[in-house]
Design a protein around this nucleic acid. Structure first.
Lengths: 341, 341
DNA sequence: CTGAAAGCGCTAACAC
DNA sequence: GTGTTAGCGCTTTCAG
């Protein structure tokens, strides 16, 4: 009635009184096989519901046709956009994508990476966890010469392809925009300074001030982890300063939103009395009221580029590493639009 | 200096003058191996950076330790939450998760499913594409007895484990809530009625009206694809009716939001003049102003349950199928809170 | 407690 | 054009 086990090329070969290699070749459209036998083989394969066993083929070929991706959290807009982009390109190229999330925990990241190694992924795309570690687990990729690509959160000490967004210009544009809107004392809520990303945003901020002959007042710069609560605490601190800011460049949209709500509850009008700009263009930033000006990061594109780069490394053994800096875009919305058009 | 190729159990065996089987056993903590040799083996394995080749092991064991998940679109809050939940449970159980997105295209879905089959996934978790097809590709899973689990969007004609949320009760609770808030004419914006999900929501709505002795006025029910634009068109149509509604139960949060903005621009006050409730608890629903009442769907939990169920099927060969209906929760926010406390 | 041997399903020299 | 053969790296009887 029904077979216990999947049909293999040997089953097909036996049925047709030919050898397994011929079947294998035919199934790969190897031109050395005559059209006639090839057709016979393909017909039978279809009729018995033959599915190649990728496992066996991969073992033999010493490659898995798989690329791994690890992110801090799958369920975050930016990261899921990147994953979506990677999947898009990888699938078209015949690759499978395996994903894992580190939950920003160094130990889970290490464990994941080892598991990816054991699964012989052909390449790994990673945005590292916030929790710092020594990155030994990633260095083995370099040692073993397995393609490795960092995106968003990178590791400076490891030589590899990297894709980041232009955080510096992002910070710069935000700040310049606030200045143009007539805000006079612009504060900054910065993220963890061990992450390049946040450092760059802050440097862009400082540069924009300098270009406009404004000396950066260090007391207006607060550093925290950019959670919703951090935002409230920071803005509360800032507006109670003897000489408080009249605008703030928040390190992400989450803090921009919580700050905005806090200020609104205090009767401070946005953007008339106080300007706010966030970072990342989270979906909510567009629909809250007032809508939040922010910096768009091209997540899907980043994923596509990441996949393209790593596939290039895998298939063409591309040896040189580059760092791709994707442009960021300032999206001006209500929270910082004091002047009309 | 450095080996071209990864060390295998044979390399370790040779080095230690023992057999590969002993190494294999030791690495699996087989108690039949003496502590002494086991320690020697493990020490050497670590020092040479041995990583088991999962491919080989999987081929031998005829299982991939992998579960596949396919969703319409990775980059959507609900789906990425489910994926996150699946990954959470699967990883802890030692499984790898491979993901793919159908983009709601039947052809891509078929192609993905074949690829998962070729990769010998131990089980498949799927939310089917909107574009209809004959589901032959999924029936092969049943034929080959490979665990298959549907979530959210299911296929009635295929016998399998299924996880859905209680859309009926969701629709019911929303409608009852609006009635309790004193709204008198409650409309409904429904999604594609070929999907069970949207049908159930509508039926819950009808039932709640009936329970409160309100006859459902069919003219207040609009069916569309629940895009942002659909929402605007539908609400525009509804409020221009000779006898317009004073509240609307929208099939998702997207239409709830676009409706709300449209009404606000028309000078209609929410919730005083008009009540709105959405569905899904998208992140933005909480932060827009007024915040949108909605139904929470436990995406992460759904993913965890899905993984648990399918692992159970994989590992314990559980034969009976069940349909898990996860509870939905009404989240009352500003957009429908006409009465205090 | 350890070893020998066979084989998972596929591919690719190398033959003819 | 097609067949033979060996082997990818691991697990697992079976034997001792």
């Amino acid at each position: 009635m029904h077979k216990k086990t999947d049909p293999t090329i040997h089953d097909i070969a036996r049925e047709l009184n030919i050898s397994a290699s011929t079947v294998s070749r035919a199934l790969q459209n190897n031109p050395r096989i005559s059209l006639k036998t090839r057709e016979k083989i393909i017909t039978l394969a279809n009729s018995v519901g033959y599915r190649p066993n990728t496992l066996a083929s991969n073992l033999r070929n010493k490659r898995s046709n798989t690329i791994g991706i690890v992110v801090p959290l799958i369920n975050r807009y930016f990261f899921s956009a990147v994953i979506s982009g990677v999947e898009d390109v990888a699938f078209k190229a015949g690759y499978t994508v395996v994903i894992s999330q580190s939950n920003d925990l160094a130990n889970k990241e290490i464990s994941i990476v080892h598991s990816m190694l054991a699964n012989r992924v052909d390449g790994l795309i990673i945005s590292i966890a916030m929790q710092p570690t020594n990155y030994e687990h990633l260095k083995t990729f370099r040692k073993k010469n397995i393609p490795l690509l960092f995106f968003d959160r990178t590791v400076a000490e490891i030589d590899a392809n990297k894709i980041v967004v232009d955080d510096f210009m992002g910070g710069f544009r935000v700040t310049r925009h606030l200045i143009e809107q007539g805000y006079k004392r612009i504060g900054h809520m910065a993220g963890p300074q061990n992450l390049q990303t946040y450092l760059d945003r802050k440097n862009g901020y400082i540069e924009a001030l300098a270009k406009n002959d404004i000396i950066c007042d260090e007391s207006l710069v607060v550093t925290n982890s950019l959670t919703s609560e951090d935002g409230i605490n920071a803005v509360q601190y800032l507006i109670n300063l003897p000489n408080p800011p009249d605008a703030i460049f928040c390190g992400n949209d989450t803090t921009a939103l919580s700050s905005m709500i806090y200020l609104r509850d205090k009767g401070i009008r946005i953007p008339e009395d106080f300007g706010i700009v966030g970072f990342s263009n989270e979906p909510f930033s567009k629909v809250v009221s007032p809508s939040i000006s922010t910096i768009a990061q091209p997540g899907f594109l980043m994923g596509q580029k990441a996949a393209e780069l790593i596939l290039n490394q895998i298939e063409h053994k591309e040896k040189s590493f580059k760092t791709l800096v994707l442009p960021t875009e300032l999206i001006v919305r209500e929270s910082s639009s004091r002047k009309m058009g």
